[in-house]
């Protein structure tokens, strides 16, 4: 079985800047991995590349050994940083939408999670607060039995209770053999749920290590290490 994600000399240049330069990275299955870096370090570019929303300038990115396309989109469950559900849809419409397009979507699981939040499936997206919209999106994304979950800043700007809810939802729902890739700059909040971290700085991967290794070898938290590495 091939690695779930493989970047080979991956570069992405925009007119004014190089977002990723010559990235080599292999991610294995069955891990929760943090993609950590400050804002503008290339996290989102990386995630867009693996979802086929951008095309590499050079090098390649392979998901399950394949170039991004309909086949890889079937096995990647992606939570972007945006609220991307049309606001005229009812929550039940969004469930039907996911059910229609993703064969691995488990609508029973989605409905159970909605019930636990006491969310009425007849509510329209536009009547929901931003925080609730984000929760609905997370529920949809985590109700898929995907091979790779790709979560872009899932806990950016939420209160501690919501953060715990989100982390709990991720831990309880991801597929056993799947990899969860979480991009964030809020390391302290999520480091305890990570197996591995990838540090990204100015478009380069500066570290890829096991979290427990960092703690036992360096005797410090990932957050502390991050602050040292990315000190301004």
């Amino acid at each position: 079985m091939s690695a779930i994600l493989e970047c080979k000399s991956l570069s992405k240049k925009f007119t004014a800047l190089t977002a990723l330069s010559n990235v080599n990275l292999t991610l294995e299955r069955g891990r929760i991995i943090g993609l950590l870096g400050p804002n503008g370090s290339g996290k989102t570019t990386m995630i867009k590349l693996l979802n086929g929303l951008l095309v590499p300038t050079s090098g390649s990115i392979l998901v399950d050994g394949k170039l991004p396309g309909p086949e890889t989109k079937k096995i990647v469950s992606y939570l972007p940083e945006k609220t991307y559900l049309p606001d005229w849809m009812k929550i039940s419409d969004t469930i039907e939408f996911f059910q229609d397009f993703y064969p691995d979507f488990d609508s029973k699981r989605a409905n159970e999670m909605l019930e636990r939040l006491h969310l009425d499936a007849n509510r329209r997206m536009k009547t929901l607060s931003k925080g609730t919209k984000e929760k609905v999106q997370l529920i949809l994304v985590m109700s898929r039995n995907a091979d790779l979950y790709c979560l872009d800043e899932p806990i950016g700007g939420v209160d501690p209770a919501a953060r715990d809810y989100i982390l709990n939802t991720i831990i309880t729902n991801y597929n056993e053999n799947a990899t969860v890739l979480i991009s964030t700059h809020l390391i302290a909040d999520i480091e305890k749920i990570l197996d591995e971290v990838v540090f990204i700085k100015d478009g380069n991967i500066t570290l890829h290590a096991s979290v427990e290794d960092i703690r036992s070898k360096e005797g410090k938290s990932v957050d502390t290490l991050f602050r040292e590495v990315f000190k301004c």
Partner: peptide, 14 residues
């Protein structure tokens, strides 16, 4: 394991 991990908000492998 999954539920304990969720309760403690730690990685299931840990």
């Amino acid at each position: 394991v999954r539920d304990l991990a969720a309760e403690a908000t730690v990685n299931p492998n840990t």
